[in-house]
Design a protein around this nucleic acid. Structure first.
Lengths: 206, 206, 206, 206
DNA sequence: CACTAATCGAGACGGTACGTCTAGTCTTAGA
DNA sequence: TCTAAGACTAGACGTACCGTCTCGATTAGTG
């Protein structure tokens, strides 16, 4: 390849980006990925099989996604459409419980296992980890942060509270149970977590 | 052979079972696994390489461990020796902070990445998941439970508190940060989590 | 995809089949097989080692040959190029002796051991047996048959003779000595066999 | 071990040789070998399986036989008991035909495939080759030689005939057909071979 | 008749190769 | 030019046997 070709290619990929990417191949790939995920589970999937089922060349997948996890995550995310937004009724405890319960239900469903597998896969796949952070973790925390900030502004939360830590305390237990299989995820647990987080474990010393 | 002999033979083969497992092979395998883990990371390891480095037949590994993850976990656990026990000075907040900080330090160290990889691997490896639950999660929670129960008995915790939920709220954030890579694990975070969990997020309504 | 397209696709895959087999891999495989055969002998060879020496993936070998024996036989046959054709000088005894001696020399050479190993291997490898029959036994017998038929037409052979049996009697002793290691193969033996076969063992009763 | 001990040991092993070999183990091994040969064929057998079926330690087999082939050959030979002796009625052609047909029948039976497998195995197993030569080939040829010598003495065979070559010509075709699978072995073929060998292929030139 | 050493069954061991699978790259024909 | 198809190198998978090596538990023959 000549120097000029190279330059052109670089420019076009960054700037012009005609993006001859064929939408039909993208769709077929994601559909196949989702179908295989639901049928066989994350571990049993391979890029080879996704390509075969999608009627798409392997190269086409490697061209547009950095790893198996990235394909599967995109497919699952597109399908999952878990609500990000909070109802803000003013009843802090109720609104939080609604939100936490909603995620808990997803985690308890078959798709919960797939999320777990993806988080698991991300431990050895930086691209997937990146995608997960960007398209799952950060948006969720952003909305939660806004919600809690409003509650704080209304004086419903301790004024000295670090909201990042608050989010950790409320949501981390769901991920813990999802990934450690210590005990099942259910609505009672979700509600109890919100309750304990808001009230605190310690007796009131004042 | 007499009937009695036969019975004896059967019993001895089932019950006494001298288990001719050779300790030297076990040691070599675990040492090799640990060395490779530290050198290349969990993802880059293979049973083949563990066997080669240990100077052990692959079959010998497959004979005694159900999966790569199980070998690595046993090796890491043996080496880690993270303290399980709590100092119980009576100062609940201080004791919890000490304990949580200690685990946080492990998670922040290189071995934290290995623990993350193992928890990740457990999502697709039931044997590893089982081992993790049995030899990591449950013992830790058992000690934490005893500790919190004593605090509760002393009247330091809310009498209506579900201690399982309490443990979740205190420790889950560490696993969350370990696995989701949202933000680094450090001592300040550990202390803030303990603090928020004990005090609660909400303003005191009374 | 239209119905016609589908039909075309099916037909082209079955009939046209461009066979994208890469000649360079075929060559490297056969060369490596021959080199290993000559160096270590048939028994000590493995598909693994052929692949390694050829710089070829194992799968590529398994894709195109049904067994180790089939690869080795193809390699040896390509290299051996034993003459099939007969000089037909009209002197039946001399021509046969020339031909039998020629094969006897091959059998007495190092390649003879390899042929023996291949015939041995064919006893438990139907694919190799098939290849041996198709590319060694049958062509040889076809030429021998044509030669003997001409001699018979010229009145040099008994008119009631079953030529298949005639071929057996002349050539089988070479295979017998090759495989049973009863006594060495040499030119004197080859000539004696031709002589005895033509003349017969019995005294002439007329 | 002292020098004297060593000497004693050597002597006793060579001379006294109490041979504590347990006949029951030998029997069980050979029976198991034969059963597996008949059930699965030579290629599918392993020393491991023979030992397991015989209820015998692998070491015991390795102690007394040099290779799988040697065990199987001993087992088959013990069971086969093909007649070695010739009826000598004076009718040379008839007696030979009887004998050749008898071996042809064995080769055409399932045990023929096993003999073929053993001859095949002998190509890569010197111990088996040795056993085959000693206990199959040589005894057979010895008897044939004696028989043909008598015929020669009676003036039924050409006085200048090399009897080794004569034996080759008569019996080799059976081995050829057994091992090359060119055409089936049947009684007609056996008779035709004897006939052609005795009479010769060529027209009588005198 | 007890002793003692070879033999036995069992099966773990270090190895090697098997045949399969998938990764990720490369080649080719066709749209 | 980009795609699908799929062949390619590479190498791990988990299994099967190899032949060697303990390990106690039988056996014989000997002392």
């Amino acid at each position: 390849m000549s120097r000029q070709d190279e330059t052109y290619r670089l420019l076009s990929s960054l700037v012009l980006r005609p993006s001859r990417r064929r939408e039909s191949s993208r769709r077929a790939t994601l559909d196949a990925a989702l179908a295989l995920l639901r049928a066989d589970g994350y571990g049993a999937m391979t890029i080879e099989r996704i390509a075969a089922r999608a009627g798409v060349g392997k190269q086409t997948i490697y061209r547009w996604w950095p790893s198996k996890g990235a394909v599967v995550f995109e497919a699952l995310l597109e399908d999952l459409r878990v609500s990000l937004t909070f109802d803000d009724t003013g009843d802090l405890r109720a609104d939080l419980t609604t939100q936490v319960t909603s995620l808990s239900r997803v985690f308890a469903s078959p798709d919960g296992r797939h999320m777990a597998a993806l988080i698991g896969g991300a431990q050895g796949d930086p691209d997937l980890a990146q995608a997960l952070l960007e398209h799952w973790v950060r948006p969720r925390r952003r909305y939660a942060m806004a919600f809690l900030q409003q509650a704080k502004d209304r004086g419903q939360l301790r004024p000295d509270l670090d909201l990042e830590v608050g989010i950790d305390i409320i949501w981390a237990p769901l991920y813990y149970r999802l990934l450690l299989h210590y005990a099942p995820l259910d609505e009672a647990h979700a509600a109890a977590v919100v309750d304990a987080a808001l009230t605190g474990l310690a007796v009131r010393s004042d």
